[in-house]
């Protein structure tokens, strides 16, 4: 591959669209994209094997900014930090605000600031885990960057994926983001305490999630007052 072609592939990768590739390098761009996806999935499998060898349960949490991922994680940590030795990897574009919040609940955290990248990938997780003494933990959570689109491109090697949305995002939020719900084991509809005021059609949200993924378990929660957090913990088999 010439230097110019390399630059072109890089540009296309950044734009994340094969449609933008010139005809003469379209094949190359498609091959590169396939390779990158394959490498991520392979690494994710290795991560999962490694965690299983250590007897560590693992869950990744995805959802939009402000849906309540961190608040739910705080509630779970509050209830489980005596039963489990918990390690949390937090992904954010910048800052360590979430990691600081979760750390108050007696768990160990590592913050990844992804900068211009919109989601965590398996390589990020691999880099964190290979530098940790995994025998110290038996439960790992990965809180992804707040985003309902990009995380669907990258498996992280966890046992379960939990997607969090809130009723403040409107009843169309699940319908508009089918991919993540197809890839998730559990969908949480949070901020249910605001239902009376907002009048969001939660039944539609549940129906949409089930339509995209009949096996998905949907739980309505309020991280603010702790409603149904126990139910969520039970669904996570913790």
């Amino acid at each position: 591959m010439s230097e110019e072609e390399k630059k072109e592939v890089q540009r296309i990768k950044e734009l994340e669209s094969i449609n933008l590739a010139r005809e003469d390098i379209r094949d190359l761009v498609i091959e590169t994209k396939k390779e990158v996806e394959k490498d991520n999935d392979l690494l994710a499998e290795q991560i999962n094997d490694r965690l299983n060898n250590y007897g560590i349960k693992s869950i990744d949490i995805v959802g939009a900014i402000g849906a309540g991922k961190t608040a739910i994680l705080e509630k779970i940590a509050e209830k489980l930090s005596k039963k489990y030795k918990i390690f949390v990897i937090c992904g954010d574009i910048t800052t360590r605000v979430d990691a600081n919040r979760i750390e108050k609940h007696n768990v160990t955290t590592v913050q990844i600031n992804t900068g211009r990248e919109c989601a965590l990938n398996a390589y990020h997780i691999h880099q964190v885990l290979k530098n940790q003494d995994l025998s110290k933990y038996n439960l790992i959570f990965i809180e992804n960057v707040g985003n309902l689109i990009c995380p669907s491109d990258f498996k992280l090697g966890t046992d379960k994926r939990l997607t969090v949305v809130s009723i403040t995002e409107g009843e169309w939020v699940i319908e508009k983001h089918p991919m993540l719900f197809k890839m998730s084991d559990i969908a949480v509809i949070n901020k249910i305490d605001l239902l009376e005021r907002l009048g969001t059609d939660v039944e539609k949200m549940i129906k949409d999630a089930k339509r995209f993924n009949p096996d998905i378990r949907v739980i309505t929660t309020s991280a603010k007052d702790g409603k149904n957090i126990d139910k969520l913990i039970e669904a996570l088999e913790l």
């Binding site: 574009i93 910048t94 360590r96 590592v110 913050q111 990844i112 600031n113 992804t114 900068g115 211009r116 990248e117 990020h124 880099q127 964190v128 530098n131």
Partner: peptide, 25 residues
């Protein structure tokens, strides 16, 4: 311009960082 950091990363003053850089842990 916003590299990726996996903590811990310690930067002294006047460090210049290019594009698509991954630093840490």
């Amino acid at each position: 311009d916003y590299p990726t950091f996996i903590e811990p990363v310690y930067l002294e003053d006047n460090v210049k960082i290019g594009d698509d850089v991954l630093l840490g842990p």
